[in-house]
């Protein structure tokens, strides 16, 4: 599948800002089954980008904007060829041993409810892969996908309690529970081509990856209850949303901010 992605974020400010700094993780990398063609990050207006890489191997861009500026538009676009690997990720840059991804973070907390839920799933079963599929299926069945039900600061425990969430929450819950069962797991941000034809999307996608010895890292799109296919583009990984967030920013001045995202993911079978 060849996926054509265009992801544009516009920040509009009540008053002109004095300055802004953003850290972008919006550029996918090559690995087996994912080949990035022409990919560009563009800033409309005054702004300077400095490319880099974070310690997990994600491509980063530091964006520096000097005010006064009332609007910042960040656009990334490009094409990625994806081959079906049944969710298995091979050949990606791995800077750490999988054990690192057993860490709990404040967004991937666990509540007693979650522990009880986990206990029902035979978390210590010998077949780790089967456990992970049970975990995905159980979360998919229990938690309702509802846009706007949560915010970016919502933790796994909070989302589990309210039984609702978006893809970020599904990924956090899965990651938290898998880690408790001793399976290294991480958060992935990326894009999804939706077959039902929704080329224009409201937000980027997120899912989880878990590590199974002898197999490697395997994706779990918990919000959709499936493993990633050739419709998925991996952009960044992290311990949680904060480590893989497409944008983390800070600004001086500006008053209220209004953010608008325009995202299109189009696919063409090769």
């Amino acid at each position: 599948m060849r996926l054509r992605i265009r992801h544009s974020t516009v920040y509009a400010y009540e008053f002109p800002i004095r300055s802004a700094v953003q850290l972008l993780r919006m550029t996918p990398r090559d690995h087996e089954g994912q080949y990035v063609g022409a990919w560009r990050v563009e800033i409309e207006g005054e702004g300077r980008l400095r490319a880099g890489e974070d310690s997990l191997g994600n491509v980063t861009h530091a964006l520096y904007v000097d005010g006064p500026v009332s609007k910042i538009r960040v656009t990334v676009h490009g094409e990625v060829d994806v081959v079906e690997t049944h969710g298995v990720v091979r050949g990606a840059i791995e800077r750490f041993s999988p054990e690192v991804f057993l860490r709990e973070t404040s967004l991937t907390d666990l509540t007693p409810d979650m522990l009880a839920f986990l206990a029902e799933l035979d978390p210590q079963g010998a077949d780790r892969l089967a456990f992970l599929h049970r975990l995905m299926a159980a979360l998919f069945a229990r938690i309702e996908f509802r846009a706007g039900a949560t915010v970016t600061e919502t933790t796994a425990g909070q989302a589990f309690l309210q039984k609702q969430g978006v893809c970020q929450d599904f990924a956090h819950m899965f990651v938290a529970l898998a880690r408790r069962a001793g399976v290294p797991a991480r958060y992935v941000s990326g894009h999804l081509f939706r077959h039902e034809g929704a080329i224009e999307q409201e937000a980027a996608h997120a899912w989880a990856e878990a590590f199974v010895p002898d197999v490697g890292w395997i994706g779990f799109d918990v919000a959709n209850g499936v493993c990633p296919t050739d419709c998925y583009v991996r952009v960044a990984v992290g311990l949680d949303y904060l480590g893989a967030a497409p944008v983390r920013g800070s600004r001086t001045g500006g008053g209220r901010e209004n953010m608008e995202v325009a995202l299109s993911v189009a696919g063409k079978v090769q």
């Binding site: 974070d54 310690s55 997990l56 800077r95 750490f96 041993s97 054990e99 690192v100 057993l102 860490r103």
Partner: peptide, 18 residues
Amino acid sequence: PADLILQNPQFRLEVVGR
């Protein structure tokens, strides 16, 4: 032991290799 370091929140992944 590796886990004492790798899973320790004071071990800052962000500065590994820098």
